[in-house]
Nucleic acid binder design. Structure first.
Lengths: 342, 342
DNA sequence: CAGCCTTATTCAAACGTTTGCATAAAAAAG
DNA sequence: CTTTTTTATGCAAACGTTTGAATAAGGCTG
């Protein structure tokens, strides 16, 4: 802490008035003489007075701080969400305290604990891959503590959520592959316990079904870790097995898509000529790789903004209570690049 | 704020003892009977008591919170730094409050203001591209407020810094290009007012000089924004001008390198056969693009860790004062991929 | 000039903790 | 049984701020 920060008391002492007078003078309360106001403000300026937010926080039982729980900052999508959060929080005079879980439940639990101890006014959460049980959230909700879930939303009652239309995004991507003439399409799926994985899977299957294609369970390839190495290995294994090969890949995330593309190159298949690939998220690298990767863009920044707006509304609304699930669904955009155009 | 959080007072009231007793019992102070300790701890457990960090902060004039000022979270390198910061802060019981400047000086100034109002114990800073004057930092330093600069360090006296050996990294990269037989090497330079840009430029020039190559000022191409579009345009322009062309590019960052590579492809040059390219930072996409981009890897996570360790040491050290510039320089690693190997 | 309203200011409590000092009760010593 | 020591607890102030209620002037009214 800064040692020499001036306080209201310092101003009061120097001017031989009470702290109350100073406090009121600073905020133009009626009933303080203009003369006093002038003197107080002058001195405050001179001493570079800044109200102590901690004291305020204690007094008002409000910290103007929101907590953000996120799996990983280095994940491009999440870093764009953070930007959106920061932007709105900042514009409304709120601070952001950030914790990454690194996909660990333990970390999620203890982060929430410290954040609560720090009297955050609300919480924005995208939970970890390990989280399969949500009582640590529902307990808070039972006390009407403001929480907004984004991207990864739990399957419990009466939550407030902001998500992306994962189903539609996956549907569009798969449909696009089909319309390009790829007839046997595999899916690199995300971790099972995330709703987004399920939704993307559903969209993928629905598109196949709607276009009269059959769903081959062998071509649904779980990539729980979502690393490039993982999906490379999985793709290579698939082709080693013999039998029918898929000629299209819809991946639940860009990294997996990139991994598949590398494996295909290594195996001697041409993308997009022989095999089409579409990813999900629109990481920066999508436009830089060869061929550029088609993908489903998620509005990360907007998601951060919207989630924060919702949270601030809940914070402001004194008599809040969770009486129904409210989900704001943001639309995705299919970006067609070369990797999926024959 | 959570409405129903139990306080020491609640426990005291319920047990008919004073707050002091509760406070002491909870932390096993001597002079509290075992019986009382037991009862207090039991009830605390039952009520799910969590000390109010805000009250503690006010009482102790210490918030266990550090502020981080960063240009952008979506920048891969910075997001890895944040991870490192988080890790160490968290392990030592500190919270992290985060502000992005989006490369704006105004934002930097006001962020510092709010952070100070929130009584942060110290500051980790990588300043914005707009920042060319550092009095807002030196004022704080004059009051012995703990600040550690990382990556972008200011040219003022007695700072504590963590940087990467940008000079050596640039030198190594350029030397590597030379050793691969690229004889006329251009440099896509970063923003002028950042020390890192200068250092990388210096390393580039030194390598040329040491290997008997002449420095062509026309081939030093400023890319102040560091976007892909910018460097594409600049590269194309260079080749449109006619005259001698460079056959090697050393870029001050990966995005610029990727832009140059795209421009080269578009112009019909083969990378690495005709032109070699090396970037800086090792973004995730480097290994995914075609050809994979050689680059100078920066230890971002480690930088975050070290900077935070230094900061916490300064915070703990009561009689600190800035008496000399201390700079911790982390070594880079040249990652040779296909883009620079003939 | 007594009574009353303004106007400007102060008091004191509160937010949740910690901590030096005082105090009460019990135990030990004389 | 006094006196001293020990043991266990309580008091009160402090961190910086806000805010309802109290107070002290002075000015106006009749």
């Amino acid at each position: 802490m800064k040692l020499g920060q001036a306080t209201i008391k310092d101003i009061a002492r120097e001017l031989n008035v009470s702290s109350s007078t100073v406090s009121r003078a600073l905020k133009d309360y009626p009933g303080i003489s203009d003369e006093t106001k002038r003197k107080v403000k002058e001195l405050a300026e001179k001493l570079n007075y800044r109200p102590n937010a901690v004291a305020l926080s204690l007094r008002k039982s409000k910290s103007f701080t929101i907590g953000v729980i996120i799996p990983e900052v280095v994940h491009f999508f999440f870093s764009t969400v953070i930007s959106g959060i920061e932007e709105v929080a900042y514009a409304n005079g709120y601070n952001v305290i950030l914790c990454q879980t690194n996909e660990k439940l333990q970390r999620e639990l203890s982060s929430i604990d410290t954040m609560l101890a720090n009297q955050i006014d609300g919480l924005l959460v995208s939970y970890s891959k390990e989280t399969e049980e949500f009582s640590h959230f529902s307990k808070l909700m039972a006390q009407n503590f403001p929480i907004v879930f984004f991207d990864r939303v739990p399957e419990i009652e009466n939550t407030v959520n902001v998500t992306v239309n994962d189903y539609q995004g996956a549907y569009d991507a798969t449909k696009h592959l089909i319309s390009q003439g790829y007839t046997s399409i595999a899916h690199l799926a995300g971790p099972k316990n995330l709703t987004i994985s399920k939704k993307r899977m559903d969209g993928y299957q629905a598109a196949l079904r709607d276009h009269g294609l059959e769903i081959n369970p062998d071509w649904i390839l779980p990539c729980p870790m979502g690393t490039q190495e993982e999906s490379m290995k999985i793709t290579e294994q698939l082709f080693e097995e013999g039998g029918d090969f898929p000629n299209g890949f819809f991946a639940s995330n860009d990294i997996a898509a990139a991994g598949a593309m590398m494996a295909l190159k290594k195996l001697g298949y041409k993308v997009p000529k022989q095999v089409g690939v579409v990813g999900f998220s629109n990481w920066q690298f999508c436009s830089m790789i060869d061929p550029p990767l088609s993908t489903v863009a998620q509005p990360g920044f907007k998601m951060g903004e919207k989630a924060t707006q919702l949270l601030l509304e809940m914070i402001d609304n004194k008599d809040r209570s969770y009486d129904a699930t409210k989900t704001l669904v943001l639309e995705t955009e299919l970006l067609i690049r070369k990797s999926s155009v024959k």
